[in-house]
Design a protein around this nucleic acid. Structure first.
Lengths: 157, 157
DNA sequence: CCATTTACCAAACGGGAGTTTGGCATAGTA
DNA sequence: TACTATGCCAAACTCCCGTTTGGTAAATGG
């Protein structure tokens, strides 16, 4: 809380005039990011103007931009591995986030490769993206993430 | 420390007769797991008796067995996303673990698809495995992990 | 068999992190 | 102007967690 306060130009106690607990603040962060992804990235899958290939390219580009400019990797992924099991509200938010991600890719791929294939591939792409973000952080260089994104785009002819 | 003690039939203070700090204990855990993977799984890549395809099948099977029977996902992956940046010794151990993993798969794939391709593919397989373990935990069902493992095996003809 | 080490417990210690309290400005409102 | 609400700070509070201490009993070993 002290660190968060500092980033806001406040001391830790002052935060409690805006959020009633640290947990509530954290949940609002998860929601905020989830909504951002829904609005700016996942929505690409549901626009009618683009071809599946172009959707996939744009989608992947937006994801790459986002995580190349974020310091700590994927916040929802991090939360998933840490504390979500102990806090049902967190867990629910995280599950919905990843379901939305998968569903978006599924919608992009379905017209090209069919429902069953698209379902599996969507899951794999989300997995691979998350894993490559992890590796990017571990190694301290963007190669794993960028190579992975390239492979995603190349998946559609 | 209280929880760890309990699991050992001790109280938390007693642990300090075996490890000088929590950090040392954690590092020993990382080393222990790293060594286990080196000995039982990564070594498969360097045995001479099997074909690349059979190596990949066995390797993937061992990885699957391990993580299907582990409760908290991949410990080194979790550490990677949490605290490694603050503790250089942890970070180093984690980097080596993932490098060894990648290198093992690289060695398996190289004879079949060449050095450059094998390098990229190895990185992707490690990424995808870690990500699918994460998704398995989030969703509370093994599907993402198992589907991913199947895809790894099917990669070699 | 005595001396020393080892393994352990019970209790206390110390610091840190989230939270609460009370007061002081400033802004808005009647 | 007076009243109220808001935003914030400084300080205290509380609980938890890693760690330390002192003492006891078993194990080791010369």
């Amino acid at each position: 809380m002290a660190t968060i306060g500092e980033a806001c130009g406040l001391i830790k106690g002052s935060i409690y005039h805006h959020f009633k607990s640290k947990e509530e603040l954290a949940l609002e962060c998860l929601k905020y990011i989830h909504e951002y992804f829904n609005r700016e990235i996942f929505s690409i899958a549901y626009t009618k103007q683009l071809s599946p290939k172009d959707k996939l390219i744009l989608f992947t580009k937006k994801v790459e931009e986002y995580f190349m400019n974020s310091e700590g990797g994927c916040l929802l992924g991090n939360f998933a591995l840490e504390i979500s099991n102990n806090i049902p509200l967190f867990k629910n938010e995280i599950i919905e986030y990843f379901k939305n991600w998968e569903e978006a890719i599924y919608q992009i791929l379905k017209p090209e490769i069919g429902e069953k294939q698209a379902k599996e591939k969507a899951m794999q792409i989300v997995s691979a993206t998350q894993g490559s973000i992890m590796l990017m952080r571990i190694y301290g260089k963007p190669d794993p993430f960028k190579i992975q994104n390239k492979a995603i785009i190349d998946f559609l002819p």
